[in-house]
Design a protein around this nucleic acid. Structure first.
Lengths: 373, 373
DNA sequence: TTGTAAGCGTTATCAA
DNA sequence: TTGATAACGCTTACAA
């Protein structure tokens, strides 16, 4: 029924050694004579041996499996995080078992149980349906990324700092009024660092500001777009002649705001500044590359594996040590592009000598007729 | 050293049954009395049993592991494909071991060997560094997606049909001249269906056309952007007064062309039509949602698993059957948006009563002064 | 319906 | 430096 595989027993028979010696050839070759190594090596080739890690795992207890649980993979942030995790292969040799939970509690729990049954050595979790208290009880090292992390280790972007950076940049580029725009906050455990950092700076500098939260289900692009468009129109209407700085909670939102502005004005208007959050490709590839607070996903991934690996190693010792929980924080980086420059006009792609059509508005004043309905 | 785990032996001792009966409780519960099921169930809870799939795998030979090898995950297409694969969990229960090969032969081979050592039951491969002939020799079911597939099963988008659809749409919306734009073709095995379908229609309808291939390394966004911009400027210069229909080999390219056009004109120009390929989010979320030939990634993923599963099941039979290789083809769908409509003017977001600035060009004629250098 | 016993292919322990 | 033997935790004939 099974493909007949070559096992240590076969090699042993072929070479006259015991299975133990064959095992040692792989795990501690130095304990063999060079000659014998040669002999075994030849036998391996002759018989075309292929290692069987499942058997090894069963015997040793070390799977080198890491469970990776994300809400989804169609969002760039999560896919990029997985990408960065996989990149670590050469360093740790961990294999990743990937699951999408869609933030549904039952899915998440099922998958986690599944992971445990595969004896994963650790879990990286980005979805947030299950409280960290429960995760901690699994008896497996767990590192959280951007989620509630009371009872487990975690690595997070310094959102507060990000909010500070964003507001500061908007302030520096001469904005009179600042706006924080976010979608609905469904996750109650979600921290409000971005908003709070923003507010801190506004308060500190004495800049008038508003916090605008859309309540539209953000799974629908068009609806969300329309909601944000309305917000922006409203802002334009209420603050004529002022320079308005908008900080969006993420790049997707920022992209929508940008799109709306450019579609309305035919260019990026003088009297607006815009900054997003995440540093996702859309910020660079948008019609006008826009400023953003870049999350260092590579650093986060690296750090998370560091923390996880530390715990795994401690656990694998003969006398398992218990490592204290760690909460790491990664500072985001300001990515300063056209939408937050003093002269905020969108320059055309290089190669053009003269302006196209409608590239300048008439002096930072927007046309009220734009703001219908 | 190891966390003491509860095993069948423990349950057996607790309940007075044999290990076999416990095993049966999980794999064929119907063969037990309801009473005894109850008894075992209670014991499981009492001892807090957790199944160990590694042991099961070793004993049964069935891992339920599928190897998934992609060039990368930062491109939306690949991430989305993985997403769709993971979605199949409820249907097949396969667990995916994910690797990024960056299309490097040595990486790819290492990872494949690794997958084999974990006794994966099958492999889905999208990267193309290793010839299918070698893959076929591994003795494990393999399904290729969008790559050379001479010796293995595969599922592909009907690229030829896609090219036909694209050219037909451009023809229908009144274009005088058609252009196929693509980046460098590094992969020699890559089929030219999109281009060929395009050419077929152009020839059939007697429309003048050009095939334009950039030779700029497409890993650099800016460079690629500039290269395509130049192409477009050149087209505009050479075909004044004509309606020019551009078909880009993928949405990323189309997005660049669109961006360039909108940046140059302040809006999407009358005398251009544009269609991309892939149906990626950028086509919908771009400043002007553009037309595209949508790949049905969900269908492709589903079909691939179907084919793979068929082979796996055949192989798992007592007398393994050999299933012939299958080459499936999935027809793409035309996604018709503003950039290929007769009146191709970009309408502003709803809610605006009057036009903004520079939303109309003066009659399909472009300004030559735009085309500097 | 249940039990016995022999694996599955390694690693770990102890002894030689 | 090497080997015999017992795990590892489950599945699977075959027997009862």
């Amino acid at each position: 029924m099974r493909k007949q595989k070559v096992t240590f027993a076969d090699i042993a028979k072929e070479t006259g050694f015991s299975k133990t010696t064959i095992s040692r050839y792989f795990n501690a070759p130095d304990t063999l004579t060079t000659e014998n190594q040669e002999i075994i090596c030849r036998a391996l080739e002759k018989l075309n041996y292929r290692e069987n890690k499942v058997a090894r795992i069963l015997a040793s207890g070390h799977t080198e499996f890491i469970g990776f649980v994300v809400p989804n993979l169609y969002m760039h942030y999560y896919a990029e995080m997985l990408h960065q995790m996989l990149t670590s292969y050469s360093k740790y040799g961990y294999k990743f078992l990937v699951f999408e939970s869609y933030d549904k509690e039952d899915y998440e729990r099922t998958y986690l149980q599944d992971l445990l049954s595969y004896n994963v050595e650790g879990i990286i979790i980005l979805s947030h349906a299950i409280p960290s208290r429960e995760l901690a009880s699994y008896g497996v090292p767990v590192v959280a990324i951007e989620r509630e992390d009371h009872y487990i280790s975690s690595v997070n972007t310094d959102n507060l700092m990000g909010g500070v950076q964003a507001a500061s940049l908007l302030y520096k580029c001469g904005c009179d009024d600042l706006f924080f725009i976010d979608g609905p906050i469904l996750d109650l455990a979600r921290p409000h660092g971005r908003r709070d950092g923003f507010i801190n700076i506004c308060t500190e500098k004495g800049i008038p500001f508003e916090v605008l939260i859309s309540d539209v289900d953000n799974s629908d692009y068009k609806e969300t777009y329309n909601a944000f468009s309305k917000m922006v129109d409203d802002i334009a209407l209420r603050y004529p002649g002022k320079k308005k700085g908008i900080f969006c909670a993420n790049d997707t939102y920022a992209s929508m705001v940008l799109t709306h502005l450019v579609r309305s004005y035919g260019h990026f208007p003088d009297d607006f500044s815009l900054i997003g959050f995440d540093g996702s490709p859309v910020s660079e590839n948008a019609i006008i590359p826009f400023s953003t607070i870049g999350q260092q996903i590579n650093v986060i991934a690296e750090r998370a594996l560091e923390v996880l690996n530390e715990q795994i190693e401690a656990r694998n010792k003969r006398i398992p040590e218990s490592v204290p929980i760690r909460h790491e924080v990664v500072t985001p980086v300001v990515i300063n592009r056209e939408t937050t420059s003093q002269s905020v006009l969108a320059e055309p792609a290089s190669g053009y000598k003269t302006g196209g059509i409608g590239r300048r508005s008439k002096g930072g004043k927007i046309n009220n007729s734009l703001l219908g309905t």
